[in-house]
């Protein structure tokens, strides 16, 4: 095998890595958008809302991601939604990570001292205003380290999207190996790429914890 084949392989792997990162980011964003209402339901006064919220968290944390991806991939056309496999897979990852993110957020809310809510009340903040300006920013900040862990988990989990035909890094490596039969080269190679991305994220997570301790966030009025 000559050098150009390796170079082509590397280029393909790089493209795959891009897909892996892109689908993970999409999944995290979709997950966060779902996690907010799920968390709100879990903390609401309505019993029905809490029941639904608990069901969501329990179910999507209880089903193996691989099975969930397959289910959603086939369920979408069944209910009349034709999505490209990238979108279907991002959605599958998203509804799964939403369950975990909702719990992380809830944890973030629960550690906010009662005095914070009280101060907002005493200064006549409405329910929405105190949620938007006082509670949510603190909850997100408190949940940040857990959220980074969740990003790492999703990045790893995204390797499963290959089963529904998304050409992520794992899938690309499989394709290359199918042609050049050098599993000992390509599989460890992508393992180290995953590792590098995750260690970078973890490093960022430690830094964000430090920032949290100093109480130094960006502002919104």
């Amino acid at each position: 095998m000559d050098h150009s084949a390796y170079l082509t392989g590397l280029r393909l792997i790089a493209t795959g890595a891009g897909v892996t990162v892109a689908i993970s980011l999409c999944a995290i964003a979709i997950g966060f958008a779902i996690a907010l209402p799920v968390c709100a339901a879990n903390m609401s006064g309505s019993r029905i809302a809490r029941l639904l919220g608990h069901f969501y968290v329990s179910f999507f944390r209880g089903v193996p991601l691989l099975v969930l991806l397959l289910l959603i991939y086939y369920l979408l056309p069944f209910v009349g939604l034709e999505l490209p496999s990238f979108a279907a897979a991002a959605l599958g990852l998203g509804v799964c990570t939403a369950a975990y993110q909702a719990e992380n957020l809830r944890g973030g809310f629960l550690i906010i001292p009662a005095g914070q809510r009280e101060a907002a009340l005493a200064f006549s903040y409405s329910r929405y205003q105190s949620w938007r300006h006082i509670l949510l920013p603190q909850a997100i900040r408190a949940a940040m380290p857990m959220m980074v862990n969740e990003m790492i988990a999703i990045l790893k989990a995204s390797s499963l999207v290959s089963v529904v035909g998304v050409a992520d890094m794992t899938r690309v490596a499989q394709n290359i190996v199918a042609r050049d039969v050098q599993p000992l080269l390509w599989y460890p190679a992508i393992a180290f790429i995953y590792l590098a991305i995750n260690l970078t994220l973890a490093h960022f997570s430690h830094r964000s914890v430090g920032r949290l301790r100093r109480g130094r966030p960006e502002f919104r009025l």
Partner: peptide, 10 residues
Amino acid sequence: GTPLLVQLFV
């Protein structure tokens, strides 16, 4: 730090 699937492949 690496996906189980990739570990299994290796």
